[in-house]
Design a protein around this nucleic acid. Sequence first.
DNA 1: TCACAAAACTAACGATTGTTAGTTTTGTAT
DNA 2: ATACAAAACTAACAATCGTTAGTTTTGTGA
Lengths: 189, 189
Amino acid sequence: MSITRKQEIINTAALLFKEKGFNAVSMRDLAQEMGIKAASIYNHLPSKQSILGAIIFEVSVEFTTHINAVIDDSLPILQKLEAIITMHIDLTLKKSEFLACMNNDWVHLNDVDKKQYIKMRNAYEEKFRSLLLQGIQEKALKPIDLEIMLFSILSTLRTFYLWYAKHQMLDFEKVKGDLCTTLLTGIRS
Amino acid sequence: MSITRKQEIINTAALLFKEKGFNAVSMRDLAQEMGIKAASIYNHLPSKQSILGAIIFEVSVEFTTHINAVIDDSLPILQKLEAIITMHIDLTLKKSEFLACMNNDWVHLNDVDKKQYIKMRNAYEEKFRSLLLQGIQEKALKPIDLEIMLFSILSTLRTFYLWYAKHQMLDFEKVKGDLCTTLLTGIRS
DNA sequence: TCACAAAACTAACGATTGTTAGTTTTGTAT
DNA sequence: ATACAAAACTAACAATCGTTAGTTTTGTGA
């Protein structure tokens, strides 16, 4: 079986949500984009918020899975960080609409989903933090404030989809290299 | 004359918009937060979108003014970059709600305001880009892809208000120093 | 061809939205 | 005390929202 109708709706919703934001997209907008009527969507999904949930958890699960894999891998710390950066770029190229939704519209999840999302997000950050701390302790990284380090890298990675939207045509390896350089060794020569 | 009623409304709106997003805040929500009725707001401001416009242009004008001042200043390039970073931190501390609105809700400006905003934003980026290019040419900065450099720094600065919301209690000078280090010389030792 | 499930439809609901018109209250300067 | 403007109010509007119920069409396997 190929892509389900449900998944088609989710993908289309992600695209619209990215452009206008969750609250600015009505079920009628989404339906029109699918070439059907709003009520028909409810044959596939129970609510508007559930669509948002499906979008957000699809990528947040992927992030969690990948960072766990990197942690379990036995690589030098700097290569682990590189692997994470690469993973973010990778996901950005494949699912930029989903990332945009996650970043901008997680606030509009229902209470249960929101708690779950925040939990996963915190867990992800905590794992990232541990890696950076390890890097500092091994003297591979400078002893700068851990939180600033973490925040700086994460904010760049999380909003990379914005940059991608503008510059699309790109050499994956070059972007990866330049981003690693910028984030890890800095821009000053 | 102290702070006007109009400005009070704008400030309150910025707070609510930051928390829930422009579309998720109704005029009745805003009015309730002010202790008045929704219709009363229209004695001070012509529309909901005009409130958003007031919020966004208040800070975007400030950004433009400041980067112009920095450019006109006769400082070495690295110190100019430092000055810009400092300015971003400064504005974050003073007006984090306004920055949050600008970042998240500029999409919901009316057409005229949106065009104007994008214009100012592009101009700001262009000035920033010129400074970085100058830095590269003077060999003060590494010859990395200019766009990635620009994007990386800007995305960190633009979302710094998110970090500030979590860590508030902070030593301004330390944050400034650590952020400059992270963004300019990188985290790798 | 028949049966059944998937997926579309029409029609409508109650709630909420931004906004307007017209009126009343509040504060202030003469 | 009077006049006037600022700032609040009540009441209502037309539009749009997410969602439901019930019905019809479409596609598929026996």
